[in-house]
Design a protein around this nucleic acid. Sequence first.
DNA 1: CTAGTACGGGAACGATCGCTCCACAACTCG
DNA 2: CGAGTTGTGGAGCGATCGTTCCCGTACTAG
Lengths: 194, 194
Amino acid sequence: MGRPRQFDEQDAVVRATELFWRRGYHATSVRDLGDELKLTPSSLYRTFTDKHTLFLRALDHYRATESAQAERLLAVDDRPVRDVLRDWMLWLVTCPPDGEPGRGCFVVNTATELGTADARISERTEAAFEVTRQALRSLLLKGRGQGELAADLDIDGAVELLFTTVLGLRVRERAGHGRAAMATAIDVAVRALG
Amino acid sequence: MGRPRQFDEQDAVVRATELFWRRGYHATSVRDLGDELKLTPSSLYRTFTDKHTLFLRALDHYRATESAQAERLLAVDDRPVRDVLRDWMLWLVTCPPDGEPGRGCFVVNTATELGTADARISERTEAAFEVTRQALRSLLLKGRGQGELAADLDIDGAVELLFTTVLGLRVRERAGHGRAAMATAIDVAVRALG
DNA sequence: CTAGTACGGGAACGATCGCTCCACAACTCG
DNA sequence: CGAGTTGTGGAGCGATCGTTCCCGTACTAG
């Protein structure tokens, strides 16, 4: 009972995610959030407890949507594994296609801004990283099983290199590096699978 | 003439660099800096103009010292290029060996925290990135010239992949990833040179 | 209708932000 | 010595930080 909400909580989380994503945790003030989400401080705190909790919600939302899209791209079953891998990496690097400067990856930005100091945050970034590693691993296993990749391919090693490369790519997108250079890196990485 | 300084300016820059490195730009307050550098606000502002300018000084100092150490490691001339490359990458990832959580790379942390919004900062991060790419390029060229690497090695491609890998490694160090996993990624990357 | 409950709007809390100002101290030069 | 110059210490500026509180509002239950 009581007075009904005048805003959509999920929509507010989406907007908060975009703001935190672009500016990072410390550079985003509660008033910035209030303006963007069209929420007064009282509604914001009543709904999301505090800034830190809202940030965790934003991280979770980002992981959920990002993972969903990634799974869709990786689930393509009728194309060569190498092509699926390349397209997925290219997509990771082109996520925000419209003008404006690259936002990089919210998880990577968060991990570098806050390091390992905050446990509740770093357990989320680590979980996100682990999802990526597992997605790479199962894709490579599929490729090896289908004979597209060498039978003696070092899966663990390949996963580590590809995962590390992905992190590097997302830093470069945030830094505004050209798509061509990153596409080159992706090509070489994929070709390194043998 | 006038009253002499009671502190060493260079030493203050070193301390400021460490603080900005660990905490990032926005999370480091002028009072934090004052405490760490043992400077009153008036001395700090008289000497370094403002927080932003001090941050640029810190970035420049980091680049200078970091580049100097990297050049020393890359200048080793009596060892196989692949070993030099591997050792350099391992060193990049182990820079702060003593306890405490990894600080990652100050340049990478800055690039992801501030993106491309601030021109004076991003021109410095880009310059630092370019130095790394050039160092990789000349090392690979040397290796190819000495016959250690294949004559038809795609230098541009290899540089892009290695550079991207290095950025990813520094993110991972900041995120507290284990040295073993990163060493694996490095091994595979070096082996991918053929 | 009334009582109870959750939300919206916004003033305002104490703390901290980046930064300035000024009286005083410590030096060089004539 | 005194005049000139620069650094030091620290109070304190206005602005903004994250957060709370209060009151009027919009709803449900009885």
